[in-house]
Design a protein around this nucleic acid. Structure first.
Length: 250
DNA sequence: GGGAATGTTCACTA
DNA sequence: CTAGTGAACATTCC
């Protein structure tokens, strides 16, 4: 689940703020009982982290690769991106106005009454506080890195996932293994500038359930620009799937 | 039954 | 110590 999807989830769960946890269930092994009766003070996202703030601690939920959720919020039903899911939730929380079930998620406690302060939102690709100039600087600081690995680095581009990465590189005709230092300055600048724009679009597509209609290269057979057969291969140190137009992406 | 899947962390090695 | 690697995790579907 990528940043924009997590941001969307955090938004959907805003009505839980001010509500008390009436019941907890699930497989999580790290003492979910402490949530019983606690009031949700805040719900926010940072990159791929979904954070529920309680009085003296927060709960960090990460959907990882195959995680997802199902929720009912004030009568509306929602679900996460990934349709496959285990039979039992990692964590289920019941509120007076709804219920949230997370599946295959990694959960972690943050022992802080204001976990939000621990996050730097200027590196969050889905945040209004995103700092593009600083991101460009960070990219240039490591010219030997492949552009694909650089973009997937969550410390520099938090929330940016494999789909966004694939789509962005295709749009700028850049091969994922291309070294950052070998990319023309103008192109690199353009990529960084487009990242938050892509993220906003992704967010809207997810929200309106039209996500895959807007994919240009990810899981596509042919390049929509030139018609070449798309090559699917594992790339970079991150060893993630890349969809590449062999004619255009250099 | 092997491989896939929008991700991260940790143990281990050189 | 650091950088790089590979496994682990989790789980269902085809």
């Amino acid at each position: 689940m990528e940043g924009p999807s997590v941001k969307l989830a955090a938004e959907r769960f805003q009505p839980f703020i001010g509500r008390k946890v009436l019941g907890v269930a699930g497989d999580m092994a790290i003492g979910k009982e402490r949530l019983e009766g606690k009031e949700v003070k805040d719900v926010f996202s940072w990159g791929k982290h979904l954070v529920f703030q309680f009085d003296t601690f927060a709960l960090r939920i990460h959907m990882m690769l195959i995680g997802t959720y199902e929720a009912t919020v004030e009568g509306d039903a929602f679900e996460g991106d990934y349709k496959k899911r285990s039979r039992t939730p990692t964590l289920a929380m019941t509120f007076k106005n709804g219920r949230l079930e997370t599946y295959n998620a990694f959960v972690k406690w943050i022992e802080d009454a204001e976990a939000k302060k621990l996050y730097d939102f200027s590196v969050d690709t889905s945040s209004r506080a995103w700092d593009g100039a600083a991101a460009l600087k960070r990219l240039r600081a490591k010219p030997e890195r492949g552009i694909s690995d650089a973009l997937l680095d969550q410390d520099g581009f938090s929330g940016l996932g494999n789909i966004i990465r694939n789509e962005a590189l295709w749009r700028f005709k850049i091969h994922p293994d291309r070294k950052v230092g070998d990319i023309p300055a103008a192109t690199l600048r353009a990529i960084v500038k487009e990242i938050p724009v892509f993220c906003r679009k992704f967010y809207t597509w997810r929200k309106n359930f039209v996500f895959f209609d807007h994919m240009q290269i990810y899981k596509k057979e042919t390049c929509p620009r030139c018609g070449a057969k798309v090559v699917r291969t594992v790339t970079g140190k991150a060893k993630r799937w890349s969809y590449i137009c062999p004619k255009e992406q250099r």
